[in-house]
Design a protein around this nucleic acid. Structure first.
Lengths: 109, 109
DNA sequence: GCCGATGTTCGATGGTTGACGAACATCGAA
DNA sequence: TTCGATGTTCGTCAACCATCGAACATCGGC
């Protein structure tokens, strides 16, 4: 169940957040979501197979970085910016600022 | 050669920093060094064998988080706080602020 | 010059992770 | 109702990582 594994804000773990963002592909997805917009998975142009993308999105979701919403067969995702900021002030901002230089190329289709 | 693998400030990689700090033990070491003091390996009270500690210190060093200085057979280590701050503004501070809650218990002997 | 203390390196081991394709489930549209 | 689009799950594989003990190198003190 996808909606079931969103951790509560107070349960978001620093080490999980760090390892989630330590992967170039997930960092790239986070970068792309940094504008606050909600995106559909299929709109993400990523250099991996869809099963691998699904796996990475699950990792981001379980780390508490993103929130996934299902609508029919489609999945929409957005960054939990505000919640992250309240849990780890300044963290996401400082990471995303430096991220584009070494994140995987993730674009919009 | 230990002193050889300190990356230059401009070569410090975000993903390497993140994965280095994603490990509870290394996060604990970073926490302990957060006061800016230089410490000797042997003074660190860590729950792992010395070979494992050596491995983790190498990881921190190669990620650019710490600077190691050798003096005889002893090794001293300190956080590269200022350099990190110039490379990734705000990053280290926000991590270290949240770290104590889930870092491995690293004390002074 | 010998011995103990301090780290490093090596090899082995077990666990985790990222990747893929294939098979599956579900929903919407024709 | 059948088919295509969208994600998930499963099994597998290779790579990586944390850990340990043992062997080694080096330096300082006795």
């Amino acid at each position: 169940m996808r909606s079931a594994d969103h951790p509560d804000v107070s349960d978001i773990s620093l080490t999980r957040v760090l390892s989630a963002l330590a992967d170039p592909l997930r960092l790239g997805v986070a970068c792309l979501l940094a504008d606050g917009e909600e995106r559909q998975w299929g709109d993400l142009d990523v250099p991996v197979s869809k099963s691998t993308l699904s796996h990475h999105m699950k990792t981001l979701r379980q780390a508490g970085l993103t929130r996934t919403r299902e609508e029919g067969t489609r999945c929409y995702v957005r960054l939990r910016t505000v919640e992250l900021e309240s849990r780890f002030p300044g963290l996401l901002a400082s990471i995303l600022q430096a991220a584009p230089a070494e994140a995987a190329p993730v674009g919009l289709r």
